[in-house]
Amino acid sequence: MAGSPGTGSRGLGSFLAAAWPVIRRRLLLALPVLLLVACGTFGLLHLAPGDAVDAMVIAGGGGDAALASELRARYGLDQPLLVQLSLYLLRLLQFDFGVSPVHNRPVLALITERLPISLLLMLTATAFAVSLGVVLGVSAAAAAGRWRDRLILAAALVIYAMPSFWVGLMLILVFAVTLGWLPVGGFETAASGLSGMARVLDIARHLILPTLALALLFVSVHLRLMRAGMLDLAGADFVRMARAKGVPRRRVLWAHLARNAVLPVIAMVGVQASTLLGGAVVIESVFSLPGLGRLAYDSVVARDLATLMGLVVVSAVIVLTVTLVVDLVMAALDPRVRLR
């Protein structure tokens, strides 16, 4: 018997108040993790052959040796690795991410200007993937073994097997090229002069296809998890009990079965936070969205260590935050879960 029954009062405010010490402890614990991640990334990136100056020389189509060494000296790339690393960590501790030699701008500015786009995409994609996964999972489970179930499962398998860039291109081909309903890519219409609500709608139109493409990556996982959970719980006594006391079929399905089966799906969102970031790289490139993923890809190609390090740290923060948020949501949805 755990705790005293019935202490919980209902309301978001009090829930968050109760969760605050947990949030604070998590954040403190995250610091050493972030430092480790930063060191590890630094090491890994230095294992890759070539540096930012090589990449710049490539971008410029060639150049002589003196120019390259001048550039190396300018960006401190000629210093010993350990010196570079400690300088970086020292600055990082002061929340200084340094200046990107490639973009010639502060890394923090580069990241913050792209962060909203990635976050928006990740948020819409997650929301969509979870809702669609849940609805399809429930629908499949409710028809377990019959044609609707098989159809949904087969579709999930097909989608699961398709690479996301291909899904993206297919969506473009159908909805942008053939039907002409939606734009091919971009975050908003270039230099449209739109503002206010019109601009919001314009952005929304641009986000539909990338959201779909990124979400499809996860829908099949969510729906299968949901379906399995539903079937698992279908024989549970509390479901029989609900039916026995006269709860209508639909409500049994949603309020009792689905409400419980959704918990592993939510937990999966936390597990997949890093996959989501990875998927965003591909999708952002296919849909010409200037988000973090694309910045990361470009930075690898350009050996832009400063930006990459900043991105890794920010990504780690995002993953940790998503995990924390998922844990909070889980705690709110499942009274058995206790925040630690």
Binding site: A236, D237, F238, R240, M241, A242, A244, K245, A255, H256, R259, N260, L263, L333, D334, P335, R336
Partner: peptide, 17 residues
């Protein structure tokens, strides 16, 4: 009419209600 009580009280109640 009919009501029913089940064997395992641990699983007969919905854990999230």
């Amino acid at each position: 009419g009919i009501a029913m009580v089940f064997q395992d009280p641990m699983s007969a109640l919905n854990p999230v209600h």
